[in-house]
Design a protein around this nucleic acid. Sequence first.
DNA 1: TTGTTATAACTGTTATTACAATTTTTAAAT
DNA 2: ATTTAAAAATTGTAATAACAGTTATAACAA
Lengths: 229, 229
Amino acid sequence: MQTGATLTKVKRSASEPLRDQILQRCRMMLMAGHVVPGQKLPLRPLAEEFDTSLMPVRDALNRLVADGALELSSSRTIRVPDMSDERLIELHEIRRSLEGLAAEYATPHISVSSIDRMQELIGEMAEALKVDDFDTYIARHFSFHFTLYAAAERETLLGLIDRLWLQVGPYFRQGIEQAKTACENPNVAHIKIVAGLKARDSTMVRTSVEYDVFSAVDFLRTGIWPKGQ
Amino acid sequence: MQTGATLTKVKRSASEPLRDQILQRCRMMLMAGHVVPGQKLPLRPLAEEFDTSLMPVRDALNRLVADGALELSSSRTIRVPDMSDERLIELHEIRRSLEGLAAEYATPHISVSSIDRMQELIGEMAEALKVDDFDTYIARHFSFHFTLYAAAERETLLGLIDRLWLQVGPYFRQGIEQAKTACENPNVAHIKIVAGLKARDSTMVRTSVEYDVFSAVDFLRTGIWPKGQ
DNA sequence: TTGTTATAACTGTTATTACAATTTTTAAAT
DNA sequence: ATTTAAAAATTGTAATAACAGTTATAACAA
């Protein structure tokens, strides 16, 4: 299947449908950049790897298509969509708007322990980057942002932001690998976010998050078009 | 099935999968408020009405669950979700943010003929309201807003806004029927939107759209809790 | 009448199979 | 060697049936 990730069997349990277990796996693959743009994800090989029938795999992938994380190309093959300049910019206009909103709502409510955790995550991100452990970097980076956004306690908003991250996931990894050094720049935003939270300054947090998202555009662009098209 | 809408058979054609045809039907039912909050939508009766098997119906409904327009209650029955005060407010915080964004981007690009059409739609809305033709009112109201948002030419943004409308759809109809007279208020916003477009004043259009969304909250609340809980 | 238990009906999920369309491969002809 | 055409393999979709929960109903007991 060449998903780049180690896939093990999923088990049928009453608590969680196979579809959801498979969905979770596929989400991880996308977020971690373990699938590459343009890559096909045919149902049957995936079903074989998960040791299930087509149906739950089909359900999971259809869900991801609905979320814009995958696409149904003409002649109905499911693949990881390519990124265009326009789409990248649009996604980040929306990200800026929604993540800024979430950041603002989160600021008064977020717990001190969560802020401390975010502080730690900044350190762990730097550590991971030093040893080229991109998987860990991506995981910590995700935790950092979603610890903040979850504190806004807006379920629908969180879901929308999640969808947007799923769409940039496959390109984010390429961005880091290409522009590793440039990652210091976003980290400045991260530090300001934590500082803003400690001061309970909603405007500062929102502005810092918006800047973080803003700077991500150029960062991602270098990953998508390394030669500088 | 008691969907309130007239359902006819869907036909298997090469061009469009049954799932998408059924999805379209269900979307209409939700947007037009032809299903009521709390109502169950079991697969088998729907499949019988559409004269298909479970699968395409299941696909369509799962998609709507993913979109937040339907919910999988505990004990996995699919139903129209109830609206809470918190959810209503959250949805409109997001709506305001995203529809404001779309409005701003649309203003410089929207064609004169589209603006004219929007002007017409305001009239048609008033007409429909006079004769209690709520179906027409809802359809025209939808056209009015999405003519604007489509002009922004942001596919992902449009998709997100569409999702949000799908979630408020079932409650919008109740709102109109309950607070019919109060509908003059939103119309003021509509008129300002068109005026702003003619002047190509992005800020004015954005502000008017944001006010329209803002005023929709109270309006919808009267529909959801008519007694004034 | 009320509470409990067994039975039946109904729910979405999953597996299997068949299908139609597309893509790839193979073979033949130029 | 290149082009064309036929055949095989691969794709997602859809139908059917079996499954495992849950909910409703009915029968029985107190």
